[in-house]
């Protein structure tokens, strides 16, 4: 796990004792903070093919909420896009859909600024494949793959 920790430390989001792997979430999970109201706030981290998706999750008594999504480019350690939510129930499917929308929107805008012509549907399909892997493929394998790519 130490290599994975150093990967996230480069993003300023992990110290050795603050990150663990959650099988149920299929994601790396940071240390949570429980408020006086009893709600627990934590981050979960997923990656696939060079992007890292950070979910800001709030867990209440009856529901979990997705409060924010940040997507980073791992190689350059650059924040690509972010979105904040309010009263947005958390599920892996909705978080995945939100991430796909954010990425395709960002790619579309960036391509438009650079006068790059692209097939939107094809682009969205490829982005969907990658983001789906970040949410549903085995994250420990994805992390190992990313570390190999970074050290290559």
């Amino acid at each position: 796990m130490s290599q994975e920790i150093s990967l996230f430390r480069n993003f300023g989001i992990a110290t050795p004792n603050t990150i663990t792997f959650s099988k149920s979430l299929n994601a790396l999970v940071g240390v949570g903070y429980t408020s006086m109201a009893g709600n627990t706030y934590f981050n979960s981290l997923r990656m696939a093919d060079g992007i890292l998706i950070k979910e800001d999750i709030g867990q209440g008594y009856a529901h979990s909420f997705l409060n924010g999504l940040h997507i980073y480019d791992i190689r350059t350690k650059t924040l690509i896009c972010e979105k904040l939510f309010s009263c947005h129930y958390y599920s892996r499917d909705t978080a995945k859909s939100d991430a796909i929308d954010m990425l395709t929107d960002m790619i579309g805008k960036a391509a438009s600024k650079e006068n790059i012509i692209l097939n939107y549907n094809e682009m969205r399909s490829k982005v969907s494949d990658i983001v789906r892997r970040a949410f549903f493929a085995d994250q420990m394998q994805e992390i190992q793959k990313t570390l190999k790519q970074l050290s290559a």
Binding site: C81, M106, I107, I116, M123, K126
Partner: peptide
């Protein structure tokens, strides 16, 4: 601008563009 540059480079690397 930095984010757009990063996402376009990433998109080219993974074959999206």
């Amino acid at each position: 601008s930095e984010s757009r540059r990063a996402v376009l480079n990433w998109a080219k690397e993974v074959g999206i563009l």
